[in-house]
Write a protein that binds this DNA or RNA. Structure first.
Length: 432
RNA sequence: GCCGUCGUAGCUCAGUCGGUAGAGCGUGUGACUGUUAAUCACAAGGUCAACGGUUCGAUCCCGUUCGACGGCGCCA
C-alpha cells in the first residue's frame, strides 16, 4: 500500500482502480442504509468516499455511518470515475479509520457573521478561508522575491516604541516597566534610520492602530509592508510601488488561479495590472469628482465615498499625488514646484477598494521638520533621535507603507478586510 | 467620537394588535445499497440578552445597560 497522498494529487492524476490512502476531515456525510457517502477534505481539495457495508470491517462501516462533520479520518480505497460523485471521481473505501471524533460542528448551513467570527478558529477550515490564506502567502512570496531581486534588505524594526509616528492616529498604550510605551503603528522612522547603512530597506511587521474604525477596510492589527530608500525622490519611489504590487499580483496569477475562482475573482481581472499605473494629482482628482457631482473643495480630504467613486471604473491601481500639505503628515516633503502640496502619493486599488499604499518623499531639512512638528503640537523630546538623522549626512529619501490585508482584500475580491486575516482584530473583537 | 440596525431552541429565523411560543436545519432513535448541505417517521430541546418601569398580567410598550453587526470620520 502506498503512503497517503493529498486529495488534490489523487484528483489531478487519477488512475481508475488504483489503491490510494488519504487523510483528512469529513466535510459532509450522507447515509442510505448500507451505503455511506463521506466527502473528505484536506488542504488540497475534497473527494467523495463511498463506504459500503461488507466492503470493510463492520466496526469501520459503523464509524463511517456515525462520524460527525469535521471528524478526522484515514481512508484507504480504490479510485473510480463516477459521474454521480461530486468532482467526478470517488474513493471506494476498503478501510475507514476514525482518528479523532467530533462534537456537533457549530458552523452549519445557516450562518451569521457573528457566529462565524465567534467560531473563527473553526471557520478558517472553510474552503474560502483556506483559499484566501493561500493567496496571501503568494502575495508575500511575490513581494519578497521582487524586493530581493531589487536589492532591498529586509530589516526587523521594534514593535515596542515610544514614538507616535503619525500625529493624530491613536496608539495602543501599554505599561513598559515603570514607563509608558506603545505598540508600533509604523516602522517608518526606524527604516529611515537604517537607510544610512543599507540604502534600500523594507520590513514586514504587524502595525497597531487603536482607531475606533468600523469599516470594511480597517483592522486594529494588520500586516504592514514598509519600505524606505535613500537617494530616491517621490517619482522613483512610485515606480518601486507599482512594480512591487505588480509582482505580488503576478505571483498570485502564477500559483493561485483556482483559489481566485473559488473566491469569485476572475483571474483575467488582474491581468490588467501592469506598470506604469495612472498618476493623478490631488487637485485634478478633486476637479474630476466635482464634475461627477461631489461637493468638494481643495484642502478637504477624499472620503471613502469619493475614493470609491474615483476608482470604481478602474481595472488597475492608480496614484493620487500632491495632496495639500495641511492634511498630510509632518515628515512629508513640500513640493517646491507647488508649495501648497507635498511630494506624496497614495495608491488606490481599483473597483472601489481604495487606498492600499501611502507614501512620500521625506522632508530632509532640520529646520522645516522642527517647525512642522511644533505646528502640529507634537512634543519634540521623543523625536530627537529622528531629528539626528537630519544632522548626520542627510540624503533625499522616500518610502511608503502598504497594507497587506488591503491588497489581499482587493485581489480576492473580499467584502470585508477581516477575511484577509485568519484571526481579525477589530474594535469590537479580540477573540478568538 | 458620531449615526443606524439587531438580540426568541445548538444554528437561521417567524410570531404574540400585551394573556409565558413555532418552523426549517442540527442533535437523538428507527427505516433506506447511489447520495449531491439526501429522504421518511418519532423524540428531546426555550428565564424570548440583562436590569428597572407601566400594567391585573410584559418576550411584546417605555427606559437603562451589555453584546453584535452596518455606515461615517481617521488611516494602510
Amino acid at each position: 500500500m502506498s503512503s497517503p497522498r493529498k486529495i488534490g494529487q489523487v484528483l489531478s492524476s487519477p488512475v481508475p482502480g488504483q489503491e490510494e490512502a488519504i487523510q483528512g476531515w469529513i466535510y459532509r456525510t450522507r447515509s442510505s442504509g448500507a451505503i455511506v457517502f463521506a466527502v473528505v477534505r484536506d488542504s488540497s481539495g475534497v473527494i467523495q468516499v463511498t463506504v459500503k457495508k461488507g466492503n470493510l470491517p463492520e466496526g469501520e462501516f459503523e464509524a463511517a455511518k456515525s462520524a460527525p462533520v469535521e471528524s478526522s479520518v484515514i481512508v484507504i480505497g480504490k479510485v473510480f470515475e463516477d459521474k454521480r460523485a461530486p468532482g467526478g471521481y470517488e474513493l471506494k473505501a476498503s478501510s475507514f479509520k476514525l482518528v479523532g471524533g467530533a462534537d456537533p460542528f457549530p458552523i452549519t448551513e445557516y450562518q451569521s457573521e457573528e457566529l462565524l467570527l465567534d467560531n473563527r478558529h473553526l471557520w478558517i477550515r472553510s474552503r474560502e478561508q483556506t483559499a484566501v490564506m493561500k493567496v496571501k502567502a503568494s502575495v508575500l512570496e511575490g513581494a519578497r522575491a521582487w524586493l530581493k531581486a531589487n536589492d532591498f534588505t529586509e530589516v526587523t524594526p521594534p514593535i515596542l516604541t515610544q514614538n507616535a509616528c503619525e500625529g493624530g492616529v491613536t496608539l495602543f498604550k501599554l505599561k513598559y516597566f515603570d514607563r509608558e510605551a506603545y505598540l508600533s503603528q509604523s516602522a517608518q522612522m526606524y527604516l529611515e534610520a537604517l537607510i544610512f547603512s543599507l540604502d534600500r530597506v523594507y520590513s514586514l511587521t504587524p502595525s497597531f492602530r487603536a482607531e475606533k474604525s468600523r469599516t470594511t477596510r480597517h483592522l486594529t492589527e494588520y500586516w504592514h509592508l514598509e519600505l524606505e530608500e535613500a537617494w530616491t525622490d517621490n517619482d522613483g519611489n512610485m515606480e518601486v510601488q507599482e512594480n512591487l504590487v505588480t509582482a505580488m499580483v503576478e505571483q498570485v496569477l502564477k500559483d493561485r488561479q483556482a483559489e481566485l475562482r473559488l473566491l469569485g475573482r476572475d483571474p483575467a481581472d488582474l491581468k490588467e495590472v501592469r506598470p506604469p499605473f495612472k498618476r493623478v494629482r490631488y487637485s485634478q482628482a478633486i476637479e474630476a469628482l466635482k464634475a461627477k457631482g461631489f461637493d468638494l473643495a481643495f484642502g478637504s480630504d477624499m472620503g471613502a465615498v469619493e475614493e470609491r467613486a474615483f476608482t470604481a471604473e478602474e481595472r488597475a491601481p492608480i496614484f493620487v499625488t500632491n495632496f495639500p500639505r495641511e492634511i498630510k503628515a509632518f515628515y512629508m516633503k513640500e513640493d517646491p514646484t507647488d508649495p501648497a502640496t507635498v511630494k506624496c502619493a497614495d495608491m488606490l486599488a481599483p473597483e472601489g477598494y481604495g487606498e492600499i499604499i501611502g507614501g512620500s518623499e521625506r522632508e530632509t531639512d532640520l529646520g522645516t521638520l522642527t517647525a512642522r512638528l511644533k505646528a502640529q503640537e507634537i512634543p519634540l523630546e521623543a523625536y530627537q533621535w529622528y531629528l539626528d538623522l537630519r544632522r548626520f549626512g542627510s540624503v533625499p529619501h522616500s518610502g511608503f507603507g502598504l497594507g497587506i490585508e488591503r491588497v489581499v482584500r482587493w485581489i480576492c475580491k473580499l467584502e470585508h478586510i477581516r477575511d484577509a486575516v485568519p484571526f481579525p482584530r477589530t474594535v469590537a473583537r479580540c477573540y478568538p
